[in-house]
Design a protein around this nucleic acid. Structure first.
Length: 305
DNA sequence: GATTGAAACCGTCATTCGAC
DNA sequence: GTCGAATGACGGTTTCAATC
């Protein structure tokens, strides 16, 4: 009679299997029996149940008589965000990377912006560039990939000249540009019409409350060109100004939602990759369990002559 | 090279969730 | 209750490989 009790220690160090994931990542899988791993089903139970319930509408229909409307609403409600799910997974399994909370733009010092006049507002563009706006009117643009101040481009505001009254001339002197280019930012109204095609990007600004926000956009954007600098809050009275304000708010909302959708898709991709990785690991574990079962069967089964 | 279908990507809208 | 963030759904666009 062979005893298999305490096999986790009786067999010496647990076997380690290398699993090649679809993403190319290699994962170490330790002995299956010795170190029971948290189940992928157990961890995000809530989510799994919810998905299953949504999929099996017949079953939910059967239990309608028992479940009140509130409970059904809970069951059918959207599952938690991918970030939550993935972070729960990562807390269960050390190998699963966490989706980090985004740092606010004011947090973490962007690279390549040094010696700025303070107070300074720093913004990041959709292309990864950083824009710093000092109170003195200086705007600096930095490219994330470059070193030191190499990526800095200067925008200088002056309040004089031929442009519409009250407008500000913004001189854009890109290092790589052939020459200095100009576009206008008036004090209370929109500008930059059409100039988007002349400069490497559009300069987009929108005031929210007291603090204006700015964004650099590529000329190919779907956003209508020309809408940009918002009037200062509190000075909107005429219907036209109200309409412009509404348009500006809409553009801002669309812009934010656009970025949110991108981020959401990125998280979803990461979440799916995580699930695929878990599937790969569990498949290996399952295979090993089957093999161990077969081995034990061979050992325990009586020999027949 | 032209066509075509699938997959990936993107922007927008509608809705829900969670913080306040 | 309000507001912003997150996300599903939908339709349009782009990319790419397969086929002719």
């Amino acid at each position: 009679m062979v005893s298999v009790a305490g096999s986790s220690t009786g067999r010496g160090s647990p076997a380690v299997t290398l699993v090649q994931l679809p993403s190319g990542q290699t994962v170490h899988v330790q002995g299956v029996i010795q170190t029971p791993q948290p189940s992928v089903i157990q961890s995000p139970q809530i989510q799994t149940v919810q998905v299953a319930t949504i999929a099996e509408t017949d079953e939910s229909a059967e239990s309608e008589g028992v479940i009140d409307s509130h409970k059904r609403r809970e069951i059918l409600s959207r599952r938690p965000s991918y970030r939550k799910i993935l972070n729960e997974l990562s807390s269960d399994v050390p190998g699963v990377p966490k989706i980090e909370e985004e740092k606010s733009e004011e947090e973490g010092t962007p690279p390549n912006i040094a010696a700025m006049a303070v107070p300074t507002s720093i913004y990041q563009t959709s292309t990864g560039q950083y824009i710093a706006i000092a109170q003195g009117g200086t705007i600096q643009i930095s490219n994330p990939g470059s070193d030191g101040v190499q990526g800095l481009q200067a925008l200088t505001m002056t309040n004089s000249g031929a442009p519409p009254p009250g407008a500000t001339i913004v001189q854009y002197a890109a290092q790589s540009a052939d020459g200095t280019q100009q576009f206008f930012v008036p004090g209370s109204q929109v500008v930059v019409q059409g100039n988007c095609l002349l400069v490497p990007f559009c300069f987009l600004a929108a005031a929210t409350g007291d603090m204006p926000t700015y964004q650099i956009r590529a000329p190919t954007t779907a956003l209508p060109q020309g809408v940009v600098m918002a009037a200062s809050p509190g000075s909107l009275h005429s219907p036209q100004q109200l309409a412009e304000e509404a348009t500006r708010k809409r553009e801002l909302r669309l812009m934010k939602n656009r970025e949110a959708a991108k981020e959401c898709r990125r998280r979803k991709k990461e979440y799916v990759k995580c699930l695929e990785s878990r599937v790969a690991v569990l498949e290996v574990q399952n295979k090993k369990l089957i093999e161990e079962l077969e081995t034990l069967k061979d050992i325990c089964s009586p020999k027949t002559d």
